[in-house]
C-alpha cells in the first residue's frame, strides 16, 4: 500500500477577532484506497483541517505531501491545476451551479482539465451519472433536483477526473436518513470496487463507524486513530 496523503505538523491560527490556534501540530497519513472519517465536536477544527489538505487554504504551518509531491508552497495557479486533477469535493450543501444542467455540472471540471475532448467528457460524465443512477436527470437543470439527487450529482462531479482523493465535508449532513444511507453506500462501494481514496468529515457516528478508519479530533489535535 502506498501513501497518497501525508500531513506533517500542521498548525493554523486565526487572528480575527483574537488570536486562536485552531490546529496544533496535526500529523497523519492516508493510504491509497482508504476510507477515512474525521470526527470530533463542533468547532474542533475538522473543516479547517480539510481545507488545508485540499489545498484551498494555504495559510498554515507544516507540510502536506500528496502522491509524494510536496504541495505546500505551490503557487495559487499550480494549486488550482492540482485540485482540478487530483481532488474531488463533496460538500454539505450541494453547491451545484444552478444555471447548468446536471450533466454540465459534472462535465465542467473535465473540460477545465482539458485531457479529453468535449464528447469524451460528455461520455465520461454520463457514465458517472449512470453509475449513480442519475443519468435520467442528466439534462435537468441542477437547481430543479432534490437534495439527495443534487448530492449524487455532486459526487459524480467529484469523480469525473478520477481524483487521487475524494474529500467530503459532511457530505450527508444535509440529507435525510434514507439519502444518508444511499450516499454512504455509494462512497463505500466507490472505495471497495474502485479503490477510491476518500477522506470525509462527519458528525454521524454511524457513518463514521462503517468507514475504514476514524480520526478523532479535539481542540485542534488528533486524539485517536481508530481502525
Amino acid at each position: 500500500m502506498s501513501i497518497v496523503l501525508s500531513a506533517k505538523n500542521l498548525s493554523k491560527s486565526f487572528y480575527e477577532p483574537e488570536e486562536f490556534q485552531v490546529l496544533k501540530n496535526v500529523s497523519f497519513d492516508v493510504q491509497k484506497g482508504e476510507f477515512v472519517s474525521i470526527v470530533g465536536k463542533s468547532g474542533c477544527g475538522k473543516s479547517t483541517l480539510l481545507y488545508l489538505i485540499s489545498t484551498l487554504d494555504t495559510k498554515y504551518k507544516g507540510e502536506i505531501f500528496m502522491n509524494e509531491k510536496k504541495v505546500t508552497g505551490l503557487s495559487q495557479n499550480e494549486l488550482a491545476r492540482f485540485r482540478n486533477e487530483h481532488i474531488g469535493f463533496v460538500f454539505q450543501f450541494h453547491f451545484l451551479l444552478p444555471e447548468f444542467s446536471a450533466l454540465k455540472n459534472v462535465m465542467l471540471p473535465a473540460e477545465k482539465l482539458g485531457k479529453y475532448s468535449k464528447s469524451e467528457c460528455e461520455d465520461r460524465a454520463y457514465e458517472k451519472l449512470k453509475w449513480l443512477d442519475m443519468d435520467k436527470f442528466a439534462l435537468k437543470l441542477s437547481s430543479k433536483l432534490s437534495g439527495g439527487q443534487q448530492q449524487r450529482v455532486a459526487i459524480a462531479r467529484a469523480l469525473i477526473n478520477d481524483p487521487t482523493i475524494m474529500m467530503g465535508d459532511e457530505p450527508t449532513g444535509n440529507l435525510d436518513s434514507v439519502n444518508t444511507e444511499l450516499v454512504f453506500d455509494i462512497l463505500k462501494d466507490l472505495c471497495k470496487s474502485k479503490g477510491q481514496t476518500i477522506i470525509s468529515v462527519t458528525h454521524d457516528t454511524e457513518f463514521a463507524e462503517k468507514s475504514d478508519r476514524i480520526i478523532e479530533m479535539k481542540d485542534g489535535e488528533i486524539v485517536k486513530h481508530e481502525n
Partner: peptide
C-alpha cells in the same frame, strides 16, 4: 458560491 465552487474544482483566479 459559484465562484467558490469553481475555484474548488480547479478554476484559477
Amino acid at each position: 458560491k459559484d465562484i467558490a465552487i469553481l475555484k474548488a474544482e480547479g478554476f484559477s483566479s
